[in-house]
Design a protein around this nucleic acid. Structure first.
Lengths: 255, 255
DNA sequence: GCCTAGGTCCCGTAC
DNA sequence: GTACGGGGCCTAGGC
């Protein structure tokens, strides 16, 4: 629900509008003339001015000024948020539930108002494909282990495609399986298939940003190993090498 | 300027609307169905969903999901922001000027749109930062210890910046480190760096409202000292000494 | 440009 | 619950 005519409403009606949006846990955006006080881990006061106020569906609270990346005032969820009427203003009180902190905002007039349920089911990935990861590892085998030597990548076996095949510092043949997301039991079973086909005396390392407790138990029981890799670090390597190989302007221009 | 009818506009008109708002450096708020890609220090992809997009007057850029305090994507200013038309979408490209980072957003439809110059001249005051604490201590060195004399504050050493440097009642050189929150191991490590650089015969006091057991053990083992300070007491001093008819006191009276 | 340190840091995770 | 480390941390201040 969008209300472009908010400035024609009375203070009472405005307060009621916000109260209703809050009680139905809608996402609220206000562009308004306001002042704000914070008391908690520190104290602050923000004099009157026009700002963006955001109240999210989980009661996350933000006040943004017209410039600067960071909010000038904020409250992490969960919060208790209440509305009341002051002199010529609507008073918004935002209290954190788990800590003694509060922001009190006096809103004098509105330039914009929006409130609605937002539908956002899209997931967020810090992404690198498994192929990209194995390419990085081929260039930087030390990320697997010091002294590691890669023999081949994407090696086709009957049991499936082995991401990385190599030899460790002690000369042992080693299978490396990459998972770009948290590894579960399926990943461990997959590695087990490879190991059983490869025969005895073969090491196996599961590389992923994380592993479930169940999967780790199964992995240990079967003498496999797990090594954590950081997607952030890997993507930094990619970015860095893109820059040295190609000009920065090409990178900045686009894909 | 508020446009509640944005969803009736064509993609071209919408792009033009945004382009105009950008060129006149207005504050822009959009609630829209979008997807976003980030490439820079890391890489990420955000699938389609409804979010709040904010472009500030200094080109600060933020994408907020319906929940969580922190933005899912952002770009600190200054940025180069450009608009183009894709298939069934408006494409927003935000490139940081000083770093090789970009966010590319595809916007498929709008639920809300606002753009205008915001007028915000109100100032923002914060109380009880570490700097303010050291200012209070400068005026009231007895809060550190009876007979304490402050030589300098924020003294620059190779190992870092020493909050307070002084001489105690017995004439010993003393380093004082202030932490406004509970002090952890990091704080002790920091003081240790200072002490090791300063050489023998130098006292060091860690001043903070509290200290973790681990940190205190490490501190005692290394011959450092800890003194508890009360933030409440300090803020009382500030309140008492601040006598200007500020909007802060006006605000507090009006409550 | 680098490094250092602070932040109402926020956030996850191990204990 | 608390403590500890990481973040696309961001930001400010020196050098």
């Amino acid at each position: 629900m969008i209300n472009a005519m908010i400035n024609t409403l009375s203070l009472q009606d405005t307060a009621e509008l916000i109260r209703e949006a809050l009680s139905s846990r809608r996402f609220i955006v206000m562009i308004c003339m306001c002042e704000a006080q914070y008391i908690g881990r520190a104290r602050s006061f923000l004099e009157k001015g026009e700002r963006l106020i955001v109240i999210k569906e989980d009661t996350s609270f933000l006040i943004h000024r017209p410039t600067e990346l960071e909010p000038v005032n904020w409250q992490p969820p969960p919060n208790h948020i209440s509305i009341s009427l002051g002199e010529n203003c609507v008073i918004l009180t935002v209290r954190r539930v788990r800590k003694p902190e509060r922001v009190v905002v006096k809103i004098y007039s509105f330039k914009g108002f929006f409130s609605d349920k937002l539908s956002d089911n899209g997931s967020f990935h810090m992404h690198l494909s498994e192929k990209e990861i194995s390419e990085i590892l081929r260039k930087h085998p030390e990320l697997i282990e010091d002294g590691f030597r890669i023999v081949s990548t994407e090696f086709r076996e009957k049991a499936g495609i082995i991401d990385v095949l190599g030899v460790d510092a002690k000369g042992r043949r080693t299978i490396v399986e990459i998972k770009k997301d948290k590894a579960g039991k399926d990943a461990v079973k997959q590695v087990l298939r490879y190991v059983r086909e490869a025969g005895t005396g073969v090491r196996a390392i599961l590389l992923s940003p994380n592993i479930t407790p169940e999967a780790e138990k199964m992995l240990r029981k079967n003498g496999l190993e797990f090594k954590k890799i950081s997607m952030l670090e890997l993507s930094r390597i990619i970015t860095y090498e893109e820059h040295s190989e190609s000009s920065m302007s090409r990178f900045l221009r686009g894909e």
